[in-house]
Simulated scan of single mutants.
Amino acid sequence: MNSAIPVAVAHLNAPYGQILTAEDLTAALRAGSFTKMAHPSGSDIAAAMFIELEPEQLLACVNEVGGTLRGLQGLYEESLSRGLARVPGWEQTAEQLL
């Protein structure tokens, strides 16, 4: 792993302690689903990545692990279904790239 994933995991874990792992975030990004995470307790933290991280950071993470933009958009839609707030910055980025 280069650097985008560890930085994202550290940022997302900051308020909670070491719950989300780099491996789980990688699995979710590759699969386009939070259900692929080995430790489901981290999935709620990972779902907040659209709120907590800039679109450029999200794109760097998905590129680093060989995921797809469509998979990343699927994660965003899954986060909305969990009741998280819409993120206009991500929506604009996704609209431009998809």
Rank of each mutant, 00 (worst) to 15 (best):
A48V: 11
G17L: 03
E52T: 07
A4H: 12
A4N: 12
A46T: 09
N2C: 10
A60H: 10
P55Y: 09
T68P: 12
E91V: 06
H39E: 06
Y16T: 00
L20K: 01
I51T: 15
L25M: 11
E77D: 12
L53T: 06
W90A: 04
D44I: 00
V7R: 09
G67V: 08
S41W: 00
E64M: 09
I51E: 15
G66Q: 15
A31T: 03
G74T: 04
G71Q: 10
S3L: 12
P40M: 09
A47G: 12
L29F: 07
D44F: 00
D24R: 03
G42W: 06
T21E: 10
G83T: 03
A4I: 14
L69T: 11
E23P: 10
E52Q: 13
S81P: 00
A4E: 13
P40Q: 14
A47I: 00
G74K: 07
D24M: 04
A85I: 10
S81T: 02
H11D: 11
T21S: 14
A38I: 04
L58W: 02
S3H: 09
G66N: 15
Y76I: 04
A27Y: 03
V87I: 06
I5Q: 08
E77V: 10
L12M: 14
V62T: 14
L80M: 14
L12R: 06
T68W: 09
G74A: 15
R82P: 02
T35F: 00
A31P: 04
P55H: 11
E23V: 05
A31F: 06
A28Q: 10
R86T: 10
L59M: 08
G17Q: 07
N2S: 13
Q57I: 08
E23G: 12
L59Y: 12
